[in-house]
Computed example of a mutant assay.
Amino acid sequence: MRVVLLGSSGWLGGYVLDELAQDREVIPVPRGTVELGVTGVGDLAGRLASLAPDAVVNCAGRVGGDALGLIGANARGPAVLCAALSAAAPRARLVHLGSAAEYGAVAGRAPLTEDAPTCPQGLYGASKLAGSLAVAGSPLDAVVLRVFNAVGPGAPPTSLPGRLVRGLREAGADGVVRTGALTAARDYVDPRDVARAVALALGRATPRVLNVAGGRAVPVRDVADGLAEAAGFRGRIEESGGGPERSAFVDWQQADVSAAGAALGWRAEVPLVQSLKDLWADDPGPAPRSAAE
């Protein structure tokens, strides 16, 4: 199987590349090579036709930036990709990475199934939802994998786990780490498990949307404490009471992952504690210092 992988130089894209390269011919398309937010349908169709893929995996997108960048990459990009793929390789399989942010606020404490109402809070979630709707509504053989909160080695420094790692490195073994509110609960999944889900989705008939998550809501405070334990941190983690606006509207999320289990035979295998240990071990920052030094 020949697979074109868009966004191969991103964090999740790198894991997907490693997974797929084990037994497939993968054509990586790093960031900056093809900008879906500005590329025309005709130009992209020509590129895809020349590559003759059996499948396309779209890991490209943005998590931050201005409105034009978010809408271009996350909403326009998938729509352009679907149109170009329909023209160039209409029988190719398309796997697109969506986001738990597409669901938004949760009524009560019920796990989210794929047919749960979508009410994204903020432009990022809204732009991701628009892109996922473009994929799910296309005539292609396509699936959206709605990835919940990914955490593991190499996590971006802009993510909460990435920021916590930086704070722990800077505080030293006995210092103080100050952070925003850690009261929300999220459903975490390791990027290696995400990559396995992508690989499985390439070769099976599936529903249009599948949740990819650990399947349990974990207090964010537990993530902070898990990283502190992995770091051998003996100091204090102090919450300022602030935090991302999204946490004020979405204080709890948990996925129902039974559909992914039925369609793919997939479930998350890497425990959160291992993801956090590997994240800390993967970060090459300076060794923790004692406050007395």
Rank of each mutant, 00 (worst) to 15 (best):
D222Y: 11
A213C: 09
V212F: 05
A217L: 04
E239W: 04
D222Q: 15
E229F: 11
D222N: 12
D222G: 07
E239L: 02
I237V: 14
V209D: 05
V212Q: 01
G226F: 07
A217V: 05
R221E: 00
G215W: 09
R234Q: 03
G215P: 05
I237W: 07
G242A: 06
L210I: 01
L210T: 00
G241S: 07
V218L: 00
V218W: 08
R221H: 10
R221S: 08
I237N: 11
V223L: 06
A231C: 03
L210G: 00
G226M: 11
R216S: 14
V220F: 04
V218M: 01
R216M: 14
Q253V: 14
F233P: 01
D251N: 14
E229T: 15
D222S: 13
V212I: 15
G214Q: 09
V250D: 12
A213K: 09
V220I: 13
Q254Y: 06
G242D: 12
V223W: 08
A213T: 13
Q253W: 12
V212D: 04
G241F: 06
S240T: 14
R236I: 00
R236K: 03
V250I: 12
F249N: 02
V250Y: 07
E245M: 08
G215R: 11
A217Q: 09
V212C: 01
W252C: 00
A228I: 04
L210H: 01
S240M: 07
Q253A: 10
G241N: 02
Q254I: 13
A224G: 00
V250P: 00
I237L: 08
